[in-house]
Structure formats: structure tokens, C-alpha cells
Design a protein around this nucleic acid. Structure first.
Lengths: 168, 168
DNA sequence: TTGCGATCATAAGCTCGCTTATAATATTAA
DNA sequence: TTAATATTATAAGCGAGCTTATGATCGCAA
């Protein structure tokens, strides 16, 4: 009698919202990459470049914080973006550990086109979705991000303390 | 006069829904992994294992279709999952190219606990979100997935076929 | 002033998704 | 029957995220 347990584990009628989020996000990313394969920049790089533009001369640590990325993740991005001529690293005159980040003329030149294509993908993704529902989704996603990002440690401790099942 | 253009490129008041999706998805995945670091299985592996359980003996190609993954992506997962003893590959007696997939007793044993922790993460993520809004988000995510998957040519066919290939 | 703990950047190596390519086998057409 | 095509699994290698660790430097405190 396995059938009922199957339903419990992966109910097709109400799929785990985490899986839905992952699938929707993955498909949008995939579509965007396909939509802009002729531009030498990815969506993640666009996001980073736009932020560097707003924080011209910032350090990688502060930028990583602003983008909610781990420093090493950003560092790898900057490696590629610097190699691609999108961004420039200069030594910080006030702190010999740090490097200042600057956009390149070439990098800035690509941003508007990227944004246009991104909007095209969003429009395709949201076809048939009402404006009200879009707003609900945006608000809910922001709530989720706040819930999970606010204080990871505390919430995790609470949850972890809840249950430890020892099968013996 | 850069300020107005900055707003256009990355408006903090209405951030690109694609970025929100990616962030929410990433944070949920991160939280889940933290929540279940003592279990030798990831969320993606859980999803795959549950599906193998429903399609015991299926081929990797059909499983990849059912999960909407590229065959090579699934192949890599199965590599790791087989090494971890979660899943088993056997030669298909009817097709010498194919391998049949089966869950392991050890793999099945981990699923219920994984599901419980997944639900805990979802509950934490959705704190303060009304049930109605959750339903709206689920419906919208399904629309997005359909919108972006259908145009990819025949994702609908694949999804439909996946449901049918169940046992008889 | 020294010395010790934070902070900055980054190395190593992992999962997870992808594209592109290839060997083996199956299947279909000629 | 044989030749062309399709399918199955997998290799190689990239992007995007992560954890953990390490060398340099900064800053504070004894």
C-alpha cells in the first residue's frame, strides 16, 4: 500500500512552493540567457554592474553586502567581469587590503539593452497574470526574503531545537 | 545627470521580479540545506528520489523529462546519489543503452524526515502571509512556469507524458 | 608599542543548472 | 540488408551560489 504515502511525499496537486520557486526562477534565468546570448553579460553580472554603477568606487565587501552575496561569490563574478572588461579593480589608497570597483565605459554601454531584454522576459513570463496578482506575488516574495534573511541564526535555532528524531 | 538613469536601471521600489524570484528561491534552498545538514541528501536529491520512487525502474531519460531537467543534469545527480547509496542503476534488459533506476532502502528511509524539514522551512518562509496570498503565488508561479516552458517548444507534451508513464 | 582579534580579498572545492559533443545502441528508411 | 537517423547515457566545461580556510592588513587594547 504505497500509494497514499506517495501522495504525501510529492503531491502533484499542491507542489512544494519551494520547488515552484526554483522552477520559475530557473526558467526565467534560462529564458533571459537565451534572449541575450549575443550580449557578453549574464543576468547576475547585469545586477552587479548596475549596483557598481550606483556605488562607484566601493569595496567588494560592501558590494557583496549590498547584493546579499557571499564575498567569495562576488569575487568570482568580478574576476570574470574584469576579464570581460565590464568592471575595473583599483587598489584602495586608504586600505591596502581592499580594492575599489569601477564600471567600465564598455560595461555601462551594455546595461540599457540588457534591461530592455529583461523586461521582455518578464512580460512573457507574466502573460495572463493580472496586475493585482503580480503585486501580491512581489509583496509575498519580499516577505519570504525578509523572513529568511532577517536573522538566519535565531530562526534556525528555534526550528532546530524543535525536533531531533533518533531512529533506533 | 546619472541619477534618473540609475532609477531606471535598478529601481529599489519595484525590483525586477526575476531578481526577487531568484533571491527567494536561493534563500529557501539555503535555509533548507542548513536545516538538514545532518542528512546526507539535498533538496534536489530529495525531489529526484521521490520521483524515482513513483517511477521505480524508469530510465534516466524519462525521469529527466518528468523532472524537467536536462539528461546530463540528472545523470550527474544520479552519479552522486548512487555513490551515496540512495539510488541504484541496473542495466535495462530490453535496451542496452538504457539503465533502470531504483530507490534504495536507505534512500527511501530518509524521505519522510526530509519532507518534514522542508515543510518547516516553508512555514518559516511564509510567516505572516495569508493563505489566500499563498494560493495566488502558487497559481502565478504555475502560470510563469507554463508560459516559459511551453514556448520552449513542447514542454507541455513532456510534462503530460511524465504523468502517464506511471505504472499500470 | 606590541600584539591580538576583526576585516578584506581570495583559494579550494562542493552542488546544481546549463550547452555542446560523443560513443553505443535502437530504429527507421532505402 | 544496409545505411541514415534518433535516442540513451555520459564527458567536458561554464556560470552561479555556497562553506571553509588562509594571507594580508587594519584597528583596538593592554
Amino acid at each position: 500500500m504505497n500509494e497514499p504515502q506517495h501522495e504525501l511525499l510529492l503531491d502533484p496537486k499542491s507542489p512544494h512552493i519551494g520547488f515552484l520557486l526554483a522552477d520559475a526562477s530557473r526558467l526565467m534565468r534560462k529564458r533571459f540567457e537565451h534572449e541575450s546570448r549575443d550580449i557578453a553579460m549574464t543576468a547576475a553580472q547585469m545586477k552587479i554592474l548596475a549596483r557598481v554603477w550606483k556605488m562607484e568606487g566601493t569595496s567588494q565587501a560592501r558590494l557583496a553586502n549590498a547584493l546579499d552575496l557571499e564575498p567569495i561569490t562576488l569575487c568570482r563574478h568580478v574576476d570574470r567581469m574584469e576579464a570581460a572588461g565590464l568592471v575595473e579593480r583599483r587598489p584602495d589608497p586608504a586600505d591596502r587590503r581592499a580594492r575599489q570597483l569601477f564600471t567600465t565605459e564598455a560595461g555601462r554601454a551594455l546595461l540599457p539593452d540588457m534591461r530592455i531584454r529583461g523586461e521582455r522576459v518578464v512580460k512573457a513570463a507574466l502573460r495572463g497574470v493580472s496586475e493585482a496578482d503580480v503585486q501580491t506575488v512581489i509583496a509575498t516574495l519580499n516577505t519570504i526574503i525578509a523572513n529568511l534573511g532577517e536573522d538566519g541564526d535565531r530562526a534556525c535555532d528555534l526550528a532546530a531545537a524543535a525536533q531531533v528524531t533518533e531512529d533506533a
